[in-house]
Design a protein around this nucleic acid. Sequence first.
DNA 1: TTTATTATGTGATAACATAACAAAATCCTA
DNA 2: TAGGATTTTGTTATGTTATCACATAATAAA
Lengths: 169, 169
Amino acid sequence: MLNSGLTPAKSLSIEVAERICAERGARFTPLRRTALEVLLEFNGPVSAYDFLPALAQRLGRRLAPPTAYRALGFLLEQGFICRIETRNAFTLATHLEDRNAGVFFLCDHCGATVEVDADGITELLAGRAAALGFEVGRRIVELQGICADCRYTTAAVEGQSQVVRGRRA
Amino acid sequence: MLNSGLTPAKSLSIEVAERICAERGARFTPLRRTALEVLLEFNGPVSAYDFLPALAQRLGRRLAPPTAYRALGFLLEQGFICRIETRNAFTLATHLEDRNAGVFFLCDHCGATVEVDADGITELLAGRAAALGFEVGRRIVELQGICADCRYTTAAVEGQSQVVRGRRA
DNA sequence: TTTATTATGTGATAACATAACAAAATCCTA
DNA sequence: TAGGATTTTGTTATGTTATCACATAATAAA
Protein backbone atom coordinates (compact mmCIF):
# COMPACT_ATOMS: atom_id res chain seq x y z
CA MET A 1 0.00 0.00 0.00
CA LEU A 2 2.90 2.26 -0.67
CA ASN A 3 3.80 3.17 2.86
CA SER A 4 0.48 4.63 3.87
CA GLY A 5 0.40 2.44 6.93
CA LEU A 6 3.70 3.66 8.26
CA THR A 7 4.07 6.43 10.76
CA PRO A 8 4.59 9.61 8.83
CA ALA A 9 6.54 12.65 9.89
CA LYS A 10 8.83 11.17 12.46
CA SER A 11 10.15 14.63 12.82
CA LEU A 12 6.89 16.27 13.85
CA SER A 13 5.42 15.89 17.30
CA ILE A 14 3.48 18.01 19.72
CA GLU A 15 6.71 18.91 21.47
CA VAL A 16 8.42 19.95 18.27
CA ALA A 17 5.40 21.97 17.20
CA GLU A 18 5.30 23.64 20.55
CA ARG A 19 8.92 24.66 20.34
CA ILE A 20 8.56 25.95 16.79
CA CYS A 21 5.51 28.02 17.72
CA ALA A 22 7.31 29.45 20.73
CA GLU A 23 10.24 30.45 18.53
CA ARG A 24 7.91 32.12 16.09
CA GLY A 25 5.67 33.77 18.63
CA ALA A 26 2.72 31.80 17.27
CA ARG A 27 0.06 30.81 19.77
CA PHE A 28 -0.19 27.06 20.12
CA THR A 29 -3.58 27.12 21.83
CA PRO A 30 -5.35 24.04 23.25
CA LEU A 31 -7.57 23.87 20.18
CA ARG A 32 -4.61 23.97 17.83
CA ARG A 33 -2.65 21.52 19.88
CA THR A 34 -5.56 19.12 19.94
CA ALA A 35 -6.04 19.56 16.21
CA LEU A 36 -2.45 18.52 15.63
CA GLU A 37 -2.89 15.55 17.96
CA VAL A 38 -5.85 14.41 15.93
CA LEU A 39 -3.89 14.70 12.71
CA LEU A 40 -0.96 12.84 14.21
CA GLU A 41 -3.32 10.01 15.04
CA PHE A 42 -4.95 9.90 11.64
CA ASN A 43 -1.78 8.68 10.09
CA GLY A 44 -2.80 9.76 6.64
CA PRO A 45 -4.83 12.32 4.73
CA VAL A 46 -8.12 13.37 6.23
CA SER A 47 -10.86 15.59 4.90
CA ALA A 48 -11.96 18.61 6.88
CA TYR A 49 -15.31 16.97 7.51
CA ASP A 50 -13.78 13.76 8.83
CA PHE A 51 -11.39 15.77 10.92
CA LEU A 52 -14.17 17.89 12.41
CA PRO A 53 -15.97 15.20 14.44
CA ALA A 54 -12.66 13.63 15.47
CA LEU A 55 -11.53 16.94 16.86
CA ALA A 56 -14.90 17.56 18.48
CA GLN A 57 -14.87 14.19 20.18
CA ARG A 58 -11.40 14.70 21.54
CA LEU A 59 -12.39 18.09 22.92
CA GLY A 60 -15.65 16.73 24.27
CA ARG A 61 -17.79 19.40 22.68
CA ARG A 62 -19.57 20.23 19.49
CA LEU A 63 -17.68 22.15 16.81
CA ALA A 64 -18.79 23.96 13.68
CA PRO A 65 -16.89 23.84 10.38
CA PRO A 66 -15.19 27.22 10.71
CA THR A 67 -13.45 26.07 13.87
CA ALA A 68 -12.01 23.07 12.09
CA TYR A 69 -10.95 25.12 9.10
CA ARG A 70 -9.30 27.71 11.31
CA ALA A 71 -7.33 25.06 13.15
CA LEU A 72 -6.28 23.49 9.86
CA GLY A 73 -5.42 26.94 8.54
CA PHE A 74 -3.12 27.56 11.46
CA LEU A 75 -1.36 24.23 11.03
CA LEU A 76 -0.97 24.93 7.31
CA GLU A 77 0.49 28.36 8.04
CA GLN A 78 3.02 26.82 10.37
CA GLY A 79 3.89 24.21 7.80
CA PHE A 80 2.89 21.36 10.09
CA ILE A 81 0.45 19.95 7.58
CA CYS A 82 -0.07 19.98 3.81
CA ARG A 83 -3.21 20.21 1.80
CA ILE A 84 -3.62 17.60 -0.92
CA GLU A 85 -5.46 19.60 -3.54
CA THR A 86 -6.74 16.78 -5.69
CA ARG A 87 -8.37 15.16 -2.68
CA ASN A 88 -9.47 18.12 -0.61
CA ALA A 89 -7.58 16.52 2.22
CA PHE A 90 -5.00 17.42 4.83
CA THR A 91 -2.03 15.39 5.97
CA LEU A 92 1.03 15.78 8.15
CA ALA A 93 4.00 17.42 6.51
CA THR A 94 7.08 15.28 6.28
CA HIS A 95 9.44 18.19 5.71
CA LEU A 96 9.32 20.89 8.34
CA GLU A 97 12.32 22.65 6.90
CA ASP A 98 11.49 23.38 3.27
CA ARG A 99 7.80 24.06 2.98
CA ASN A 100 5.97 23.10 -0.23
CA ALA A 101 9.00 21.20 -1.36
CA GLY A 102 7.25 17.85 -1.40
CA VAL A 103 5.88 15.81 -4.25
CA PHE A 104 2.80 13.73 -3.57
CA PHE A 105 2.26 10.33 -5.14
CA LEU A 106 -1.41 9.43 -4.86
CA CYS A 107 -2.70 5.98 -5.66
CA ASP A 108 -6.02 6.02 -7.51
CA HIS A 109 -6.60 2.43 -6.57
CA CYS A 110 -6.02 2.13 -2.84
CA GLY A 111 -5.86 5.80 -1.90
CA ALA A 112 -2.33 5.60 -0.52
CA THR A 113 -0.43 8.85 -0.39
CA VAL A 114 3.30 9.29 -0.20
CA GLU A 115 5.19 12.51 0.02
CA VAL A 116 8.74 12.49 -1.26
CA ASP A 117 11.39 15.15 -1.42
CA ALA A 118 11.45 17.16 -4.56
CA ASP A 119 15.17 17.70 -4.97
CA GLY A 120 15.86 18.86 -8.46
CA ILE A 121 12.24 19.58 -9.22
CA THR A 122 12.29 22.62 -7.02
CA GLU A 123 15.32 23.96 -8.86
CA LEU A 124 13.86 23.18 -12.26
CA LEU A 125 10.64 24.96 -11.44
CA ALA A 126 12.55 27.87 -9.98
CA GLY A 127 14.34 28.18 -13.29
CA ARG A 128 11.07 28.30 -15.20
CA ALA A 129 9.68 30.82 -12.78
CA ALA A 130 12.74 33.03 -13.08
CA ALA A 131 12.42 32.99 -16.86
CA LEU A 132 8.88 34.29 -16.51
CA GLY A 133 9.74 36.79 -13.81
CA PHE A 134 7.35 34.89 -11.60
CA GLU A 135 7.86 34.91 -7.83
CA VAL A 136 6.88 31.49 -6.54
CA GLY A 137 5.01 31.13 -3.28
CA ARG A 138 3.34 27.80 -2.91
CA ARG A 139 4.27 24.81 -5.07
CA ILE A 140 1.81 22.00 -5.70
CA VAL A 141 3.04 18.79 -7.28
CA GLU A 142 0.70 15.83 -7.18
CA LEU A 143 1.04 12.67 -9.22
CA GLN A 144 -1.95 10.41 -9.56
CA GLY A 145 -1.58 6.83 -10.65
CA ILE A 146 -1.17 3.30 -9.38
CA CYS A 147 1.21 2.47 -6.57
CA ALA A 148 3.61 -0.45 -6.64
CA ASP A 149 1.55 -2.57 -4.29
CA CYS A 150 -1.59 -2.16 -6.34
CA ARG A 151 0.24 -2.86 -9.58
CA TYR A 152 1.65 -6.11 -8.34
CA THR A 153 -0.98 -7.45 -6.00
CA THR A 154 -4.23 -6.49 -7.64
CA ALA A 155 -3.44 -6.62 -11.31
CA ALA A 156 -5.98 -9.39 -11.79
CA VAL A 157 -8.91 -7.71 -10.10
CA GLU A 158 -9.46 -4.87 -12.51
CA GLY A 159 -12.97 -3.52 -12.54
CA GLN A 160 -13.97 -4.22 -8.99
CA SER A 161 -11.50 -1.79 -7.49
CA GLN A 162 -12.45 0.48 -4.66
CA VAL A 163 -10.84 3.57 -3.29
CA VAL A 164 -10.51 3.78 0.45
CA ARG A 165 -9.65 7.41 0.73
CA GLY A 166 -9.99 10.13 -1.83
CA ARG A 167 -11.65 10.17 -5.20
CA ARG A 168 -10.72 8.54 -8.44
CA ALA A 169 -9.03 10.47 -11.22
CA MET B 1 -0.94 40.38 -16.61
CA LEU B 2 1.26 37.54 -17.67
CA ASN B 3 -0.37 36.65 -20.93
CA SER B 4 -3.82 35.94 -19.58
CA GLY B 5 -5.32 38.29 -22.13
CA LEU B 6 -3.85 36.51 -25.10
CA THR B 7 -5.64 33.88 -27.08
CA PRO B 8 -4.69 30.54 -25.63
CA ALA B 9 -4.43 27.25 -27.44
CA LYS B 10 -3.92 28.37 -30.98
CA SER B 11 -3.78 24.73 -31.81
CA LEU B 12 -7.23 23.83 -30.51
CA SER B 13 -10.38 24.64 -32.41
CA ILE B 14 -13.75 23.07 -33.01
CA GLU B 15 -12.48 21.63 -36.24
CA VAL B 16 -9.41 20.10 -34.63
CA ALA B 17 -11.48 18.68 -31.80
CA GLU B 18 -13.91 17.22 -34.26
CA ARG B 19 -11.17 15.51 -36.17
CA ILE B 20 -9.54 14.14 -33.03
CA CYS B 21 -12.85 12.77 -31.77
CA ALA B 22 -13.54 11.15 -35.12
CA GLU B 23 -10.14 9.48 -35.04
CA ARG B 24 -10.79 8.20 -31.55
CA GLY B 25 -14.36 7.15 -32.10
CA ALA B 26 -15.46 9.61 -29.43
CA ARG B 27 -18.85 11.23 -29.91
CA PHE B 28 -18.54 14.97 -30.36
CA THR B 29 -22.20 15.69 -29.68
CA PRO B 30 -23.85 19.11 -30.01
CA LEU B 31 -23.70 19.59 -26.25
CA ARG B 32 -20.00 18.78 -26.13
CA ARG B 33 -19.25 20.89 -29.16
CA THR B 34 -21.08 23.83 -27.67
CA ALA B 35 -19.30 23.32 -24.37
CA LEU B 36 -15.98 23.59 -26.16
CA GLU B 37 -17.14 26.68 -28.01
CA VAL B 38 -18.00 28.30 -24.70
CA LEU B 39 -14.60 27.47 -23.29
CA LEU B 40 -12.88 28.76 -26.40
CA GLU B 41 -14.66 32.05 -25.87
CA PHE B 42 -13.85 32.34 -22.20
CA ASN B 43 -10.21 32.81 -22.95
CA GLY B 44 -9.15 31.80 -19.49
CA PRO B 45 -10.05 29.61 -16.55
CA VAL B 46 -13.70 29.33 -15.69
CA SER B 47 -15.48 27.65 -12.82
CA ALA B 48 -18.09 25.00 -13.50
CA TYR B 49 -20.76 27.28 -12.14
CA ASP B 50 -19.76 30.20 -14.35
CA PHE B 51 -19.53 27.86 -17.29
CA LEU B 52 -22.99 26.42 -16.63
CA PRO B 53 -25.10 29.53 -17.40
CA ALA B 54 -22.87 30.43 -20.33
CA LEU B 55 -23.44 27.01 -21.83
CA ALA B 56 -27.15 27.17 -21.04
CA GLN B 57 -27.51 30.54 -22.70
CA ARG B 58 -25.73 29.41 -25.83
CA LEU B 59 -27.97 26.36 -26.04
CA GLY B 60 -31.06 28.41 -25.27
CA ARG B 61 -32.28 26.16 -22.50
CA ARG B 62 -31.88 25.55 -18.82
CA LEU B 63 -29.18 23.15 -17.67
CA ALA B 64 -28.49 21.46 -14.37
CA PRO B 65 -25.00 21.02 -12.89
CA PRO B 66 -24.54 17.38 -13.89
CA THR B 67 -24.88 18.32 -17.53
CA ALA B 68 -22.12 20.89 -17.22
CA TYR B 69 -19.89 18.51 -15.30
CA ARG B 70 -20.43 15.76 -17.84
CA ALA B 71 -19.52 18.03 -20.70
CA LEU B 72 -16.42 19.20 -18.85
CA GLY B 73 -15.60 15.60 -18.02
CA PHE B 74 -15.69 14.67 -21.67
CA LEU B 75 -13.45 17.56 -22.66
CA LEU B 76 -11.05 16.62 -19.88
CA GLU B 77 -11.00 13.01 -21.05
CA GLN B 78 -10.15 14.09 -24.55
CA GLY B 79 -7.41 16.35 -23.23
CA PHE B 80 -9.04 19.46 -24.70
CA ILE B 81 -9.15 21.22 -21.35
CA CYS B 82 -7.29 21.11 -18.06
CA ARG B 83 -8.57 21.43 -14.55
CA ILE B 84 -6.73 23.90 -12.34
CA GLU B 85 -6.97 22.16 -9.01
CA THR B 86 -6.13 25.04 -6.73
CA ARG B 87 -8.86 27.15 -8.29
CA ASN B 88 -11.54 24.60 -9.04
CA ALA B 89 -11.47 25.92 -12.57
CA PHE B 90 -11.23 24.66 -16.12
CA THR B 91 -9.23 26.10 -18.97
CA LEU B 92 -8.25 25.20 -22.50
CA ALA B 93 -5.28 22.91 -22.83
CA THR B 94 -2.33 24.38 -24.68
CA HIS B 95 -0.73 21.02 -25.39
CA LEU B 96 -2.92 18.54 -27.21
CA GLU B 97 -0.07 16.15 -27.74
CA ASP B 98 1.32 15.38 -24.29
CA ARG B 99 -1.51 15.45 -21.81
CA ASN B 100 -0.86 16.60 -18.24
CA ALA B 101 2.57 17.75 -19.25
CA GLY B 102 1.91 21.38 -18.44
CA VAL B 103 2.97 23.48 -15.49
CA PHE B 104 0.61 26.20 -14.36
CA PHE B 105 1.82 29.52 -13.02
CA LEU B 106 -1.01 31.16 -11.11
CA CYS B 107 -0.80 34.75 -9.95
CA ASP B 108 -2.26 35.27 -6.48
CA HIS B 109 -2.52 38.97 -7.14
CA CYS B 110 -4.25 39.38 -10.50
CA GLY B 111 -5.47 35.85 -11.08
CA ALA B 112 -3.52 35.38 -14.29
CA THR B 113 -2.83 31.81 -15.30
CA VAL B 114 -0.14 30.64 -17.67
CA GLU B 115 0.55 27.12 -18.75
CA VAL B 116 4.07 26.32 -19.84
CA ASP B 117 5.68 23.17 -21.11
CA ALA B 118 7.19 21.00 -18.49
CA ASP B 119 10.21 19.65 -20.35
CA GLY B 120 12.61 18.14 -17.91
CA ILE B 121 10.11 18.14 -15.08
CA THR B 122 8.21 15.30 -16.66
CA GLU B 123 11.39 13.26 -16.90
CA LEU B 124 12.45 14.08 -13.38
CA LEU B 125 9.08 13.07 -11.98
CA ALA B 126 9.09 9.94 -14.09
CA GLY B 127 12.39 9.03 -12.49
CA ARG B 128 10.97 9.44 -9.00
CA ALA B 129 7.93 7.46 -9.94
CA ALA B 130 10.02 4.64 -11.37
CA ALA B 131 12.03 4.48 -8.16
CA LEU B 132 8.80 3.96 -6.24
CA GLY B 133 7.35 1.54 -8.75
CA PHE B 134 4.57 4.03 -9.22
CA GLU B 135 2.70 4.18 -12.52
CA VAL B 136 1.88 7.81 -13.20
CA GLY B 137 -1.44 8.77 -14.70
CA ARG B 138 -2.26 12.40 -14.22
CA ARG B 139 0.37 14.98 -13.25
CA ILE B 140 -0.58 18.18 -11.47
CA VAL B 141 1.99 20.95 -11.18
CA GLU B 142 0.73 24.33 -10.07
CA LEU B 143 2.86 27.20 -8.85
CA GLN B 144 1.19 30.00 -6.96
CA GLY B 145 2.88 33.33 -6.57
CA ILE B 146 3.16 36.79 -8.09
CA CYS B 147 3.50 37.29 -11.81
CA ALA B 148 5.98 39.64 -13.40
CA ASP B 149 3.42 42.30 -14.18
CA CYS B 150 2.14 42.42 -10.65
CA ARG B 151 5.64 42.51 -9.20
CA TYR B 152 6.66 45.47 -11.28
CA THR B 153 3.51 47.48 -11.64
CA THR B 154 1.82 47.13 -8.30
CA ALA B 155 4.72 46.80 -5.90
CA ALA B 156 3.66 50.00 -4.16
CA VAL B 157 0.02 49.11 -3.59
CA GLU B 158 0.45 46.26 -1.15
CA GLY B 159 -2.51 45.63 1.05
CA GLN B 160 -5.26 46.76 -1.24
CA SER B 161 -4.77 43.97 -3.73
CA GLN B 162 -7.69 42.17 -5.27
CA VAL B 163 -7.95 38.93 -7.09
CA VAL B 164 -9.97 38.89 -10.26
CA ARG B 165 -10.20 35.17 -10.73
CA GLY B 166 -9.46 32.44 -8.28
CA ARG B 167 -8.70 32.56 -4.61
CA ARG B 168 -5.71 33.72 -2.69
CA ALA B 169 -3.15 31.29 -1.34
C1' DT C 1 -36.57 -3.55 -36.27
C1' DT C 2 -35.08 -5.01 -31.69
C1' DT C 3 -31.81 -4.66 -28.29
C1' DA C 4 -27.91 -2.70 -26.12
C1' DT C 5 -25.24 1.12 -25.18
C1' DT C 6 -24.27 5.76 -24.53
C1' DA C 7 -25.70 10.43 -23.64
C1' DT C 8 -28.65 13.83 -21.56
C1' DG C 9 -32.49 15.68 -18.41
C1' DT C 10 -33.90 16.45 -13.76
C1' DG C 11 -34.46 16.81 -8.81
C1' DA C 12 -32.31 16.06 -4.81
C1' DT C 13 -28.51 16.03 -2.00
C1' DA C 14 -23.68 15.41 -0.69
C1' DA C 15 -19.22 17.47 0.12
C1' DC C 16 -16.33 21.39 0.74
C1' DA C 17 -15.62 26.12 2.41
C1' DT C 18 -16.36 30.84 4.13
C1' DA C 19 -19.02 35.26 5.62
C1' DA C 20 -20.48 37.77 9.37
C1' DC C 21 -20.93 38.85 13.82
C1' DA C 22 -20.76 37.72 18.98
C1' DA C 23 -18.23 36.26 22.91
C1' DA C 24 -14.16 34.90 25.20
C1' DA C 25 -9.30 34.68 25.89
C1' DT C 26 -4.90 36.80 25.62
C1' DC C 27 -1.75 40.51 25.12
C1' DC C 28 -0.07 45.10 25.80
C1' DT C 29 0.75 49.22 28.08
C1' DA C 30 0.02 52.86 31.03
C1' DT D 1 -3.30 45.34 37.44
C1' DA D 2 -7.04 47.85 35.05
C1' DG D 3 -8.46 48.89 30.76
C1' DG D 4 -8.30 48.83 25.91
C1' DA D 5 -6.59 46.49 21.76
C1' DT D 6 -5.84 42.28 19.47
C1' DT D 7 -6.42 37.60 18.60
C1' DT D 8 -8.91 33.46 19.01
C1' DT D 9 -13.01 30.83 19.25
C1' DG D 10 -18.20 30.11 19.04
C1' DT D 11 -22.24 30.13 16.22
C1' DT D 12 -25.58 30.70 12.58
C1' DA D 13 -26.18 30.94 8.16
C1' DT D 14 -24.97 30.59 3.61
C1' DG D 15 -22.03 30.14 -0.45
C1' DT D 16 -19.60 27.07 -3.57
C1' DT D 17 -18.38 22.80 -5.74
C1' DA D 18 -19.68 18.17 -7.15
C1' DT D 19 -22.27 13.90 -7.50
C1' DC D 20 -26.19 10.38 -6.96
C1' DA D 21 -30.01 8.20 -8.75
C1' DC D 22 -33.23 7.48 -11.83
C1' DA D 23 -35.87 8.81 -16.11
C1' DT D 24 -35.76 9.79 -20.96
C1' DA D 25 -33.69 10.26 -25.40
C1' DA D 26 -30.38 9.43 -28.90
C1' DT D 27 -27.23 6.49 -31.16
C1' DA D 28 -25.00 2.15 -32.26
C1' DA D 29 -25.01 -2.81 -32.91
C1' DA D 30 -27.16 -7.10 -33.90
